[in-house]
């Protein structure tokens, strides 16, 4: 059975990971722009990163039969310097017409600061004016609950259609409000933080599969590029149907990503 990992940072992963993902049934991935683990010294660093996401990485994925798409933005961890962040935002539009760019992401908040919020609002405005899908990063650990609420309020102040916005990294204390407010929700499967495959399976049992996806968010930290097939196995071993497993790990990402008009798995 094929699956899509709709949030993974392949620039931080090896080609061995692409091979293992392909062997496990991965046919497509989407890669949001994120923090590299260090602050870039200039907006030119982002220009090169966007070239890597739109040109280099799709070719590397294609070697393993995996379709690669991406999302562009300045991430909230580098948004505290508003002037710098605006420089980066100014170079995004020239990439938006690339055939594999699906929208603006992963934008959001990190420490829930005033400047992070300003830059979030400016990138929401860009998504609005350029009619782009939005992929949202919610903060880590103790900051998640507050940040998720601030982000949803900020989106509600725009004309963005919540069904064109996916709020990622939800957990048991945020999933219900995200779904109740009409957004799509993503569960990230991490070993030490966010959701484990078992807890994600629990959430699917409690909340169903509507407007919900799972992803590995594999990156340069503790993470697992095979987390999606592991969650599929967890669901299968609990006796869930092939239809449910297919919906959460293939049909739902396909539905949401197709709203971009650019997503394809062939």
């Amino acid at each position: 059975m094929s699956y899509i990992d709709p949030h993974i940072h392949m620039v931080s992963r090896t080609t061995d990971d692409y091979q293992r993902m392909a062997q496990a049934g991965c046919v497509a991935i989407t890669e949001p722009a994120f923090w590299a683990g260090f602050d870039r010294s200039s907006s030119q660093g982002f220009f090169d990163y966007f070239r890597q996401l739109t040109d280099t990485e799709p070719k590397r994925a294609a070697t393993y039969g995996i379709k690669h798409h991406c999302w562009l933005c300045i991430n909230p961890k580098e948004a505290e310097d508003v002037g710098f962040a605006r420089e980066v935002i100014s170079i995004i539009p020239e990439f938006l017409d690339c055939p594999t760019v699906l929208g603006i992401g992963e934008i959001g908040l990190n420490k829930n600061s005033k400047n992070e919020l300003i830059i979030l609002e400016e990138q929401l405005a860009l998504a609005e004016s350029a009619n782009q899908l939005v992929l949202v990063h919610t903060p880590h650990l103790e900051d998640k609950l507050k940040g998720t609420n601030l982000i949803m309020d900020a989106i509600d102040n725009t004309s963005l259609d919540p069904t064109r916005v996916l709020i990622d990294h939800v957990e048991e204390h945020t999933i219900k409000s995200v779904l109740d407010r009409g957004f799509w929700a993503g569960m990230t499967l991490y070993p030490d933080s966010k959701c484990t495959p078992q807890r994600a399976a629990d959430c699917i049992e409690m909340y169903g599969t509507d407007r919900l996806w799972i992803n590995s968010a594999g990156d340069w930290g503790p993470s697992d590029p095979l987390a999606v097939p592991k969650c599929r196995l967890e669901l299968a071993s609990r006796g869930h149907s092939e239809e449910l497993i297919n919906t959460i790990s293939f049909g739902n990402p396909l539905d949401f990503l197709s709203k971009s008009g650019k997503f394809s798995i062939s």
Partner: peptide, 20 residues
Amino acid sequence: LELLSDHSIEPIDVASTKGA
């Protein structure tokens, strides 16, 4: 998760660190 969450509502003035 709620016990382990910051329950304040207003954005903080400055993010002086990146971590949680």
